[in-house]
Amino acid sequence: MTTISSKCASTIQQEVIFPVSPSRIYEALTDATLFSEVMGGSPTETSTESSGTFSCFGGMVVGKNIELRPNKRIIQAWRIKDWEEGVYSLVKFELEEQGEGTRLTLSHTGFPEDQSEHLSKGWHINYWEPLKQFFA
């Protein structure tokens, strides 16, 4: 059974601007080969369908796609593998064209209370910085 954690200390909200189109960011987040390349070669498996599963960073992060709207939105039930079995958080990526680039807005909710600082830093280190370097 999959449940979104109700022990949520806070919501992580982050905004990042990338110098590429929403379609490139969407592809980087949903295409297993490209995601792996962007993130330094870590094993990745993804489904490009709503209700499909994903696994990234060698299985450290796993989950299920809830909604995929190409070039606009990705919503996932998302978990780190060592969380309590069956506990998922909710991750939402909103993509908005901004000039010649993309504004990505992240909303991450429903994670275990003690994970807020770790996850907040992790988004920057493991997602935003590699994406910025790749698309520089």
Rank of each mutant, 00 (worst) to 15 (best):
E97V: 10
R73K: 15
P43A: 14
G86S: 03
L131G: 07
M60P: 04
E97Q: 15
N65R: 04
T109V: 08
Q115A: 13
T102S: 07
E97C: 06
Q133H: 09
S107N: 15
W78Q: 11
L106H: 10
G58I: 08
T2W: 06
P70L: 00
S42F: 10
V91C: 14
T46I: 13
A9P: 10
S55F: 06
S21V: 01
P43D: 10
W128V: 10
K72P: 00
L95R: 07
Q76E: 11
Q76K: 07
G58W: 03
L34Q: 07
L29I: 09
G59W: 13
G59R: 14
Q98G: 07
T33L: 06
F35P: 00
T3V: 12
S107M: 15
K72T: 07
I66N: 00
E94I: 05
F54T: 12
W83E: 02
T33S: 14
W123A: 09
C56H: 11
Y26C: 01
L119T: 11
I74R: 00
P112C: 02
R79C: 03
W128M: 08
K72Y: 03
E96A: 14
V20H: 02
D82N: 13
G110V: 08
R73C: 06
T102W: 05
R103M: 14
T102H: 04
M1Q: 02
G41T: 06
R79M: 05
P112A: 01
E45Q: 15
K132C: 03
I4N: 00
G63V: 08
T11E: 12
E15M: 07
K81Y: 08
E45N: 13
Y26I: 04
E117T: 09
T44F: 06
T102I: 02
P112R: 02
S55I: 06
Q14Y: 01
E27F: 02
S50F: 01
A32W: 09
G122N: 11
G41P: 06
W78Y: 15
E27N: 09
G110I: 09
R24P: 08
E129V: 15
T53Y: 04
P70K: 02
N126V: 00
I12E: 13
N71A: 00
L29N: 01
G41C: 08
E15S: 15
S36A: 12
Q98R: 15
Q13Y: 09
E67L: 01
G101A: 07
T109S: 10
K72N: 12
T3I: 10
E129G: 02
Q13A: 06
